[in-house]
Design a protein around this nucleic acid. Structure first.
Lengths: 157, 157
DNA sequence: GCCATCTTACTCGGATATGATATGTCCGAGTCGAATCGG
DNA sequence: CCGATTCGACTCGGACATATCATATCCGAGTAAGATGGC
């Protein structure tokens, strides 16, 4: 899985902790974790296309959260970065080669594809079940001082 | 996900249909689906290392099934090809950068990593729940003539 | 003092290089079968 | 005719190129703030 997913997740959580008062630039958001700024910008664009964050141009511009964390699931972020297509894509090799047989035997989807899709559905379902607010809550429980420290760093620096 | 997973799945299923009488060479197994033989050989080696198939060298050599399909899960095959490591590997970027904070706040694992691991566990659980025999059964229901046709092609050709 | 206008600098957005990983290929070590030679 | 031995060819196994995608970067279009001049 793309490493950008982790970046995007932390980025969105940071945006939530900072608050909706002012937009935050991609460069500043990247600097906080020492990420390559131009590339992280790309992930933010993907999040903007997905409607998770909103972007404003010009001076004092930047990104801000589009909706509360309770309405952003892990699935939303993963889909925004990785794309909506399934991880296991059946190439239908069973239809290739000398033993292919008659085409009318392949009306139903490949049984393997079906089985893999079932597993992937379980994965997606679990991702969709957890919102970023759940994660925020657990993170704050582990490190109570983090939100205030982050908020201060972004507003003062 | 690697395309080789699909190849390996179909390869194992074909081995089961052919039967344990004689080993089948990688080249012949690849030809059936018009796959690049040397590369498919690589996947079979991975399956052999995982103990799913057994390999015998020399003339009349080849691969054969190591244990019945009822004891081979989708998870086994995926792990054999893709490797055992998790798809989402947390790089702990929260510990990088100016706002890292004191290290003792990071004793617990990253909340995101935990959430993602939970989803991935659901995926693995579903993969482990389904054996290749389940898939075989469904495939035979869709195309009843397939096993006999495949068996004949491999034994006669 | 207030408003409209213009300038200016700052931001995102997408087009453009680079590196790592998955894909594809090749040749050598090992091994079993068969032919051969001797008894 | 039977058995041991040698030869040979066939198979897997791992080391070696290549293609594709993720990673990283850059520069231009757009925009809102702020300065400026006029009323």
């Amino acid at each position: 899985m793309s490493e950008g997913v982790e970046w995007a997740l932390h980025g969105v959580l940071n945006l939530a902790w900072i608050g909706p008062d002012r937009p935050v630039t991609a460069a500043r958001l990247a600097a906080y974790h020492e990420l390559p700024a131009p590339y992280f910008n790309k992930q933010l664009q993907a999040l903007a296309r997905a409607g998770i964050v909103t972007s404003t141009s010009g001076p004092r511009g930047g990104f801000r959260l589009a909706r509360p964390l309770t309405q952003v699931t892990l699935m939303d972020v993963v889909a925004a970065i990785e794309g909506p297509e399934e991880a296991f894509r059946c190439a239908e090799i069973r239809q290739q080669g000398p033993g292919a047989g008659s085409p009318d035997g392949y009306q139903k989807p490949c049984a393997f594809a079906h089985a893999m899709a079932r597993a992937e559905l379980a994965w997606r379902r679990e991702l969709a079940r957890q919102t970023l607010d759940d994660v925020r809550e657990q993170a704050e429980r582990q490190a109570p001082g983090a939100p205030e420290r982050i908020r201060r760093w972004f507003l003062n620096g």
